[in-house]
Amino acid sequence: MPMTRTRTTTHPATARTRLGARIVALLSAVGVALGAPAAPGSAATPRAVSPAPRIPLPAAMADTGGGTQLLTARARTTGATTGTVRWWQRHNGRWRQVGSAPARFGAGGLAEGGSRVQGTATTPTGLYDLPFGFGTAPAPPGTTTPYRRVGAASWWCEDNASASYNRWVEPLPPDCAAGESERLAGYPTQYSRALVIGFNYHRPVRGRGAGIFLHVHGKGATAGCVSVPAGAMARILSWVRPSAHPHIAIGTVSGPTALTRH
């Protein structure tokens, strides 16, 4: 018996639907190739954007003291009593951060160094050198900056009437009143290790302020100095090199006392 063939007929509407789908797919492919916007509801992959390079703080400053080592002590505003100390090294013309630590400032906040008034418990803003270190404890290993050990007769004269105003004295001279000076051994925690900040030091102006140091934290804000934790103070003393002409810049994030204005 011969095989019977069954004829299949496609309905015209179905054929038109399939043709339309092929056309839509083709147009979509052409649109993608030409960079057309994605169809509504489709997920577009965002293009990766590289973040802008971050400029080191010293590179944004007008003056860093001319050396290759710099400490920056920055508070958010002049009314702040806390902030951050960072230390930086310049190599081949580029600054890199070596370390950082939480900092405390004067109980009266910060004040512009050129017009600061003694007895206001304010930390002077500005750019200063670091003449020498001192402490009741030995200098940490690796220290090369000049370092003086505090003894029972070591004082910092802060008497405006004294010829030794804003100087280390040992013993206390007759013209320097003890009540207006600091006996350094009386602060074994804060002055366990410290660096003299060269504020009003080389050509002292009477009444502007004396005894401004970078020293170890006490119980709270300072009387005008900058303080950091004991471990940070030891690392800083081991790091500073007289040959690198280190300086410290003290200031705020913005405004007239901003660090970038130095």
Score class of each variant (00 low, 15 high):
S28A: 08
V49H: 05
A221N: 13
C157H: 06
A111M: 08
I55Y: 03
D159A: 10
V117R: 11
T122I: 00
T136S: 15
G186K: 05
E112I: 00
S238A: 14
C225E: 08
Q69H: 09
G224A: 11
L130M: 11
T260Y: 05
G231H: 01
G209N: 14
T189V: 14
V228R: 05
L184D: 15
A137F: 01
V205K: 15
L237D: 12
F132A: 12
V196K: 14
M3P: 15
R16K: 13
A244N: 01
P51W: 03
L27T: 14
G135P: 02
T10K: 02
G179W: 07
D159W: 01
M61I: 05
T45L: 11
Q118K: 09
P204Y: 10
G65V: 06
G220A: 15
W88I: 07
G119N: 10
V98D: 14
G109A: 12
G65S: 04
P12G: 02
G119Y: 02
G218Y: 13
L127R: 10
R47E: 15
A29M: 14
F199A: 08
L127I: 01
A21V: 10
F132G: 06
P173M: 07
R7E: 11
A163R: 12
A177M: 00
A59F: 01
R7F: 07
H215S: 06
Y165S: 04
A221D: 13
H11F: 00
M233E: 15
A25N: 12
P204N: 06
E112S: 10
T6D: 13
P131H: 02
A62I: 12
R16D: 12
R76C: 02
F213Q: 10
G65C: 00
W88C: 05
P2K: 01
M1H: 04
G186Q: 12
D63F: 04
R193F: 12
L237V: 00
W155L: 11
I236E: 04
I250Y: 02
A223Y: 09
E182V: 00
Q190Y: 00
T77Q: 09
L259I: 08
S227L: 04
G113P: 04
